[in-house]
């Protein structure tokens, strides 16, 4: 077995789940390969530490929410929760994506017009003038990543 093949079996090796012949092969490889020995060590460290974190518990207020949803206002509670989850999981991200698309579209349109105006008024003056004509000095340049972040923060109106 090659190094690469051995590598993907390391977790099952650590968990002692490999059939005897494969286990022997991995053991033989480990004796010769320092990289795999290191990987076994860091892998088993992370894997075992992570399992020692067992139960996580929900907030003590969760029962009240469930009880309210099941109670007299069953329909209402259910609907409110569904709408809340929908906004957080779908509507808000979709809106973010739509705004980004719109921004890109406007950017392209504006860019085209800017180029055309620049050609026609070459003698008239600098692009600085054009920038103020289009109000571009107020336009912040954002990377696509931070744009998503800013919009998400802007729309994060229901953060508890």
């Amino acid at each position: 077995m090659k190094h690469k093949e051995i590598q993907k079996k390391l977790l099952r090796y650590i968990e002692a789940e490999l059939p005897p012949d494969e286990r022997a092969e991995v053991q033989l490889h480990l004796e010769r390969c320092e990289q795999c020995r290191k990987d076994v060590q860091s892998l088993s460290g992370a894997w075992n530490l992570s399992q020692s974190i067992k139960q996580v518990q929900p907030s003590p207020f969760l029962w009240n929410k469930i009880s309210a949803q099941l109670g007299g206002k069953t329909q209402k509670g259910g609907l409110v929760n569904k709408v809340r989850v929908f906004i957080r999981q779908t509507a808000r991200p979709a809106l973010t994506a739509a705004i980004v698309m719109l921004g890109l579209f406007i950017g392209i349109k504006l860019g085209n017009r800017l180029m055309m105006t620049e050609v026609s008024s070459r003698q008239a003056g600098t692009s600085l003038q054009l920038q103020s004509e289009f109000g571009l000095e107020n336009f912040r340049v954002l990377s696509s990543g931070s744009l998503g972040g800013e919009l998400a923060a802007f729309m994060d109106y229901e953060n508890e």
Binding site: R88, Q89, T90, R92, P93, A94, T96, A97, V100, S144, G145, S146, L147, G148, G149, A152
Partner: peptide, 15 residues
């Protein structure tokens, strides 16, 4: 599944 779609739509994967 919904979260995966939402992450994609919110462009979080870029960050």
């Amino acid at each position: 599944r919904r979260k995966k779609i939402a992450t994609w739509l919110s462009l979080d994967f870029l960050v």
